[in-house]
Design a binder for these strands. Sequence first.
DNA 1: CATTGAACCGACCGGTTGGTCTGGAATATA
DNA 2: TATATTCCAGACCAACCGGTCGGTTCAATG
Lengths: 204, 204
Amino acid sequence: MGAKGQQTRENILACAESIILQRGYSGTSIEDIIGEAGITKGGFFYHFDGKRDLAKKLMLRYLEQDKVFFDALLERASDLTEDPLQQLLIFLKLMAEAMADLPGTHPGCLVASFTYESQQFDDELRDLNRQGVLAWRHLFMEQLEKIVEKQSPGIDKPLEELADMLTTVIEGGIVMSKVLDDQHILPNQLLQYRNYIRLVFGDA
Amino acid sequence: MGAKGQQTRENILACAESIILQRGYSGTSIEDIIGEAGITKGGFFYHFDGKRDLAKKLMLRYLEQDKVFFDALLERASDLTEDPLQQLLIFLKLMAEAMADLPGTHPGCLVASFTYESQQFDDELRDLNRQGVLAWRHLFMEQLEKIVEKQSPGIDKPLEELADMLTTVIEGGIVMSKVLDDQHILPNQLLQYRNYIRLVFGDA
DNA sequence: CATTGAACCGACCGGTTGGTCTGGAATATA
DNA sequence: TATATTCCAGACCAACCGGTCGGTTCAATG
């Protein structure tokens, strides 16, 4: 595929994601998407096998972008300190700042959007969704295990629940921000979670 | 309206809510609903002015049921103790238990579902959604204010954020439970929030 | 028993939707 | 220059969807 095609394809995906996060997957017609992307039906079906194929490629792209974003933030935090707890606290601070610096309210999470229409999709896409959330759990869990390993190897804390709580707060915070049209809520909720982590792991 | 009509109407609403939480509003056709409810098109349009009217009545019903549920739990908690902090902790425990006792995973929150399709709806419905979330904020906020008033009237804590965090954890926990098809996540996340409240307000 | 109105049925309609297909412009390749 | 490939336009189609409408059932009422 040439550069031209690649660019068109990416543009379609970006437009589709933006609209779908506002109207839902079923509520978004292919004509809506091609209208926004400035192409026609022929162009769309040249790049995608159909609407379901678009959904799958959209999700793969979303999870990949998400992974890049989280990895970058965590690496940045790891550059600044060697202490696992401080790394996590910095990570959360950076994420809160990133969410606060968005031009408007967070557009929404594709995983949550698809989850509330999950019966529309096939097993493959539902499993993609699942794997995405499990990847987040794994990422946060690793960091929490480093913290425990360093400061109190004996004591067992509900690490999986604490890891899931971050995803929970993000997903819930996005919904809250969208409903109330208030972009401060999501970063504030992230900082509340950060404070909880501080209290649980006894940050000085 | 007679008892028969009332019953049919309620049945339509119940079926519609159940399906919409699985396929989304746009992904659910009127034929889907009447098929599940065991009636026909004529019956549906006798009770509702159209699909949008159904959406509005669905949301009103959902918010009302939700209010009844929360009020009942809070009243029960208030029966058991006079201390505002203990009331909240009991309330959270009761809610976690209620969520754990569900026959399966939580079916989903209509507010979140509609939020991810909000551009499909008119201002009236979007505002209904908004008022619902604000009602939850108000309910939890009142309880938090009682706690502060009793134990430390001077110190100011971010009560609004703490109140919103409960809704956040509920919304996020529902998404997590649905994605991973694990009904334990939502109650566990509620208990994590409960633990945070304990740490913030220093429960003995 | 005749009438009335609430409750419901199901055929039907116009518009929309996802998807197909043919043609052609631009670009790379031989 | 001839040819093949990439990339896209837009007419077209069958299925579906929200909504309408004339008609039916049935219990209550007079």
